[in-house]
């Protein structure tokens, strides 16, 4: 069985999408008869070749970070290279992983709906979309979950719905959460990682610059 794992992050291997791809591959490799191929979608010049590999695969999972509420432009450029295969990928099981810095799943629901539609346009079988929220760090539990998602993807060719529910437990902020987070986000505490980076780069004084005002 041919299995293609696409990393749609502009950061390539160096981002959280790359970490998730590796974890999925680990889980999938527990199946003896699976040949896993990985593709980096930030290699724009290889998009046509990768589109061919996707068309020849039995299963594929495309992993990407949420960029301005959808896929990164590079990943969309790859989707456009799939145009020759519209309506013809009937034997392909196609799944997606969307990872976002925002903890709420609602942030990724609109693109999730599009991904199901894209699968339909290609004539492929939709395997589901795993939404990982709050993805600034990849802890052990998260990596285990990604491994399990890979492992249980086969033989059915779909993500396990019980595991999909675990990827991020917060659909949206609760009424109490909204009140608490309104207070917390007004304090420097939650912004510390950004403030620290601005200081390290000597840019803190310019943090409120508005170059196009």
């Amino acid at each position: 069985m041919k299995f293609l794992l696409c990393n749609g992050s502009p950061r390539g291997k160096n981002g959280n999408s790359g970490i998730l791809v590796d974890a999925l591959a680990k889980g999938l490799s527990e199946h003896a008869d699976v040949r896993i191929e990985k593709a980096l979608l930030n290699r724009i010049g290889e998009h046509e070749q990768t589109a061919g590999a996707l068309a020849a695969a039995d299963c594929a999972i495309i992993v990407f970070p949420l960029y301005t509420d959808a896929m990164p432009g590079m990943t969309m450029a790859f989707f456009e290279k799939l145009a020759p295969y519209i309506g013809s990928l009937n034997d392909l099981h196609l799944g997606f992983v969307v990872q976002s810095g925002f903890p709420e799943k609602i942030q990724s629901r609109a693109v999730e709906k599009y991904l199901e539609r894209l699968t339909g346009i290609l004539g492929a079988q939709y395997s589901g979309t795993a939404i990982f929220g709050g993805g600034m760090s990849m802890g052990k539990n998260r990596l285990k979950l990604a491994r399990d998602l890979g492992k249980t993807f086969l033989p059915s060719g779909t993500f396990d719905p019980a595991l999909l529910a675990e990827t991020s437990r917060m659909e949206k902020l609760s009424p109490r959460g909204i009140k608490v987070m309104r207070l917390i986000t007004n304090m420097p505490l939650i912004q510390i990682p950004w403030i620290r980076q601005l200081r390290v780069n000597g840019s803190f004084k310019r943090r409120n610059d508005r170059p196009y005002a």
Partner: peptide, 8 residues
């Protein structure tokens, strides 16, 4: 509309 979405 391109592949069901906007152009890349």
């Amino acid at each position: 509309i391109s592949m069901g979405f906007v152009s890349s």
